[in-house]
Structures are given as structure tokens and as C-alpha cells.
Amino acid sequence: MSGARHRASVAPEVRRVAKPDVDHGKNERNSPMSKGKSSGSTHHVVPNPNGGWDVRRGGSDRSSGHFDNKQDAVDRGRQISRNAETELKIHNRDGRIGQSDSHGNDPRNIKG
């Protein structure tokens, strides 16, 4: 036998690491402009430009419901918001928020 030893070549172990989701601000939920949790943690009652009122999830272009009068939209918005445990923002006809209801994840403990 010769004095040289033959070593079997062994491939180095390859470890795969999952890459984090990077969307560079394309997803509104992770954008620097979103406040707190995700923008989807709110529901809004907003005036529809073609008349009536819409219930929308925060950041969504589609409405969850369309109503002829504001009170019906607010009632449905409260129902959806309670089920999803989100905040409900009720807008005035001019688009500004006139009222806000919290239906879960309220960080404050109010005594009394």
C-alpha cells in the first residue's frame, strides 16, 4: 500500500434560512405610514361619492357593505367591528372622523 491516504470528498452542509418578507413599502400593512398595528385593525363608515354610505376595512378599496342611510351603515359597521374586535371610525359627510368606537384591544384600563 502506498503511504498516501485517500480522503473521500464531503460536501459542506448547506443550511437554508428563510428570508423575511420584504416588500419595500408596497404592502400598506408594513409601510412606515401605518400606525400601530395593521391598518386592517379598523373599520370605517364613510360617505360614498355616488351617494349613500360604505363600511370599509381600514386600507381597503372595496366596501364590506353599501347602505342608503348612515344609521344602517353605522349599525352594520358596529356589528362587523365587534366580531373582528377592531376600532370603528364613523366619518361625517365631509370625510372627517366624527366618532370612534373601540371594540377590542383597548390598551387603557378605566376604573369605575
Rank of each mutant, 00 (worst) to 15 (best):
A4R: 14
S81M: 10
S38F: 03
H24K: 15
H6Y: 04
Q79N: 12
E85G: 05
R5N: 09
R108T: 04
G51C: 02
D54L: 11
G40I: 01
N109M: 10
R76T: 00
V45T: 09
V45G: 04
Q71M: 08
T86F: 02
H103T: 00
V46D: 05
G36R: 10
S41Y: 04
I90G: 07
H43L: 12
K26Q: 15
G3Y: 11
P107D: 06
P107Q: 06
G65Q: 07
G65P: 00
G104R: 04
E87C: 05
M1Y: 10
N83H: 05
A11C: 01
K89N: 12
H6A: 09
S39M: 03
G58R: 01
Q99F: 08
R82G: 10
H91A: 14
K89L: 13
A8M: 02
G112F: 08
K19Y: 01
P12W: 00
V46A: 09
N83P: 02
S41I: 00
G65W: 08
G59W: 07
D68N: 08
R29W: 08
G77E: 05
N30R: 15
K19T: 13
E85A: 10
P32E: 08
S34F: 00
D106I: 07
K37P: 02
G58N: 02
T86W: 04
H66R: 12
K19Q: 14
M1G: 15
R16N: 06
S31H: 14
H6D: 06
S38L: 08
S102F: 00
R62C: 00
N109Q: 12
E87T: 14
G112R: 12
N69L: 02
R5W: 04
S60M: 07
N92Q: 15
E87N: 14
M33S: 09
R15Y: 04
D23H: 14
M1W: 08
S9K: 14
S9Q: 15
H6N: 09
V74Q: 05
I97V: 15
S81D: 08
N50V: 01
I80L: 15
D101G: 03
H91T: 10
A18T: 08
A18D: 06
T42G: 01
